[in-house]
């Protein structure tokens, strides 16, 4: 029971990071794009207005997932920790550059193109780096020889599946972010920005769905068991596809844009939870499963109780944040 609650909580937080992080990462890229193409678009103001109050919250989702993983499944700290020193450190440096340069560019004294460039480009590199952990979790890249755990970095680098996952991560970021900003621009009653972000939503929708299929197909060559499990639960992925079609339809028609973004979340939600559900019981093929490597019941129950107590604190706070900034028409319109 503890292992199921634990992995569910962690997966929900990772999904939260996927959505909120994607909006943030993509927004950074669009902001940079608007700057270099010299579009005197108000899109950058819109992005700033959304990002300024919430950027700090994004990172916490990721840290929460990592700490929770160690708490519920301590052995994963050993395997992933040993194997991921190099890619993990690279991702950390990218996160560091992004976080600090956002603050420098935003609160610092003057706008610098270098800061904006670093901020924009890391927005694409970070999801690329982080997505490789999902690839690694499929097995075959972390090996245990005579007690020592190693990552086969070269194999990972020349593996087609790993590159398709990376590409999917990047286009998903651009797609999720564009659909959210379409909705936000509409709330801000900014027609120019709305049309620009709508165009980006349409542009990235094709690659997103195409690459999703490719990931699905190439998984069969890489992890047959997981692929089979996904086929058995194919209804979840069909729901994801239906949500995608509905979202795209509303965006195309420029109607119900809030609902459209909700469908985008559902699209990724179904796919992400379907992927995670069929990945079970493995956290890392074939070494770590949620049943064999779960923490002691004492610790597990304490963590769950702490989590519930924490939610009572967090949910009202998050609600307040959203109410004051995201769902406040005056704020969104910059009044």
């Amino acid at each position: 029971m503890i292992e199921l609650i634990g992995i569910t909580v962690l997966w929900i937080f990772l999904f939260g990071y996927l959505i909120i992080g994607s909006i943030d990462f993509g927004a950074g890229f669009y902001s940079f794009y608007a700057k270099i193409t010299n579009k005197k678009h108000s899109i950058r103001q819109i992005i700033d207005r959304y990002l300024s109050p919430v950027w700090e919250v994004t990172n916490v989702f990721l840290v929460f997932f990592m700490i929770g993983l160690i708490g519920f499944f301590p052995d994963s700290a050993y395997y992933y920790g040993t194997a991921l020193l190099v890619p993990g450190s690279v991702a950390l440096v990218l996160l560091a550059i992004r976080g600090s340069f956002y603050a420098f560019a935003n609160y610092g004294a003057r706008e610098s193109n270098i800061y904006l460039f670093l901020y924009g480009i890391t927005g694409l590199l970070i999801p690329a780096a982080l997505s490789t952990v999902l690839t690694i979790s499929e097995g075959g890249f972390i090996v245990r020889t005579s007690g020592d755990v190693h990552l086969l970095l070269l194999e990972l680098f020349v593996n087609p599946y790993s590159w398709i996952v990376v590409m999917l991560a990047i286009v998903s970021v651009l797609f999720i972010s564009a659909t959210f900003l379409t909705y936000y621009a509409n709330k801000a009653k900014d027609k120019d920005a709305l049309l620009l972000m709508r165009r980006f939503s349409m542009i990235w929708s094709g690659p997103t769905i195409l690459l999703s299929f490719l990931v699905f197909l190439t998984l069969s060559t890489h992890n047959e068991a997981h692929f089979q499990a996904m086929l058995d639960e194919s209804w979840i992925f069909l729901l994801s596809l239906v949500s995608f079609v509905l979202a795209l339809w509303f965006i195309y028609k420029q109607k119900y844009l809030g609902l459209a973004f909700t469908f985008v979340c559902l699209q990724f939600g179904f796919a992400f939870f379907g992927y995670g559900y069929t990945h079970l019981p493995y956290i890392l093929y074939p070494y770590i499963t949620i049943f064999d490597n779960v923490t002691s019941p004492e610790m597990g129950i304490t963590l769950i109780m702490a989590f519930i107590a924490g939610l009572f604190l967090l949910l009202p706070s998050l609600y307040l944040l959203l109410r004051l900034f995201l769902f406040n028409a005056e704020y969104v319109q910059g009044k």
Binding site: V60, V63, F64, I67, G68, I70, G71, F72, F73, P74, D75, A77, Y78, G81, T295, S296, M299, T302, L303, A306, F307, G310, L313, L314
Partner: peptide
């Protein structure tokens, strides 16, 4: 160390993120 610490002292680490 984190493998061991995760088993015993994960609670405050977890609460710190909250």
């Amino acid at each position: 160390f984190m493998q061991a610490a995760g088993k015993i002292i994960a609670l405050p680490l977890f609460m710190e993120t909250f």
